[in-house]
């Protein structure tokens, strides 16, 4: 419990730091949202300064920060200038579609990566292992943006799957079942990009940790005692190899909001990614800051979950914590 409290405190401090960092960025910014208005001769400079005062942009940084913290406490996360509404509902609407995308992609990634990693580790050196090894090396090396562009090219040329957006234009006319199919089809492209770029990392880590346990003296001894391959693998090896997998799973959870930003922008998925890009380009400060903090909350939560899972699964860590 004490451990949990300490971790939670640390996560909160981290979030405080992230918000300060985001504020520092935006303070460094040379322009502001009203730069384009300033170029317009029909808008008087007084109007612009009134607008700036209205949105509180003329106050000093420290005051703005404390006002923002107050708005976070109210659940608003600041006020968007471009959308003219509080940031939190805006972010939440986008975050939902991001989470939909990434959670499905994460499930697929693990459903493919986990068994594949265990399988290749237990058939080490055989054809399956070598082919998978070459493929994962390639997938790890190739940057995500290239995978995204190539798959996009494939999808656009073959016209099998729709590209861009979350549903078809005529979605309102579709029945419930058709609507579901339509959404799944739209998700296919971004999900496959995310799975392709993520599965290699999962497979590699799982394979490495299973291999390490397979070569451990205790497992060798168990094999010598005549325990069957399958029983050995599932009863004795996998529980021992779980720790790195749990940490990695924590990373996956942590990346649920932040890991797909680039893919969302490229494939036109209406998630957080396009929102962040647009907001940074138009200098909609509080959306940028809010999104950063939002993503950081998720990352911190993911890390916390991983720590707690490790604590629950591994008695050694529990014992270490009690001694500390």
């Amino acid at each position: 419990m004490k451990y949990f409290a300490r971790r939670l405190l640390r996560a909160c401090l981290l979030l405080l730091g992230v918000s300060l960092l985001c504020f520092a960025f935006t303070e460094l910014a040379p322009g502001s949202f009203f730069d384009e208005m300033r170029l317009n001769p029909q808008i008087a400079p007084e109007t612009i300064s009134t607008l700036r005062a209205h949105y509180g942009l003329d106050r000093p940084l420290a005051v703005r920060y404390f006002l923002w913290v107050g708005s976070v406490a109210r659940g608003d996360f600041g006020y968007s200038i471009a959308y003219n509404e509080p940031v939190a509902p805006l972010l939440w609407a986008r975050a939902k579609s991001t989470l939909l995308l990434t959670s499905i992609a994460t499930v697929f990634t693990w459903c493919i990566g986990l068994p594949l990693g265990i399988w290749t580790a237990s058939t080490r050196g055989r054809l399956v292992d070598r082919v998978t090894g070459a493929a994962t090396s390639f997938l790890i090396a190739v940057p995500e943006i290239v995978i995204a562009i190539l798959l996009m090219a494939l999808a656009v040329r073959s016209r099998i799957v729709p590209v861009g957006g979350i549903q078809s234009l005529n979605a309102e006319d579709l029945s419930g079942w058709q609507n579901l199919c339509d959404r799944c089809l739209h998700m296919l492209l971004p999900v496959s990009i995310l799975v392709l770029s993520g599965v290699a990392i999962v497979e590699r880590h799982i394979r490495a940790s299973v291999l390490e346990v397979l070569e451990a003296p205790s497992v060798q001894a168990a094999r010598g005692l005549g325990i069957g391959r399958t029983r050995l693998l599932f009863r004795h090896v996998l529980p021992l190899a779980a720790n790195p997998a749990i940490s990695l799973f924590g990373f996956s959870v942590a990346g649920l909001l932040g890991g797909s930003l680039l893919v969302e922008v490229i494939t036109g998925w209406p998630g957080l990614g396009p929102l962040i890009l647009d907001a940074t380009l138009s200098r909609d400060l509080y959306v940028v800051i809010g999104a950063g903090v939002f993503v950081a909350v998720f990352t911190a939560a993911g890390n916390l979950v991983a720590d707690l899972l490790l604590l629950a699964c591994d008695p050694r860590i529990r014992a270490g914590e009690q001694n500390a």
């Binding site: 981290l14 992230v18 950063g292």
Partner: peptide, 18 residues
């Protein structure tokens, strides 16, 4: 702190605010 934010966010935010 730096690892808490996704690299894409960092890259775009830092670049756009310069």
């Amino acid at each position: 702190l730096f690892l808490c934010l996704p690299w894409f966010y960092f890259l775009v935010a830092m670049r756009a605010f310069l």
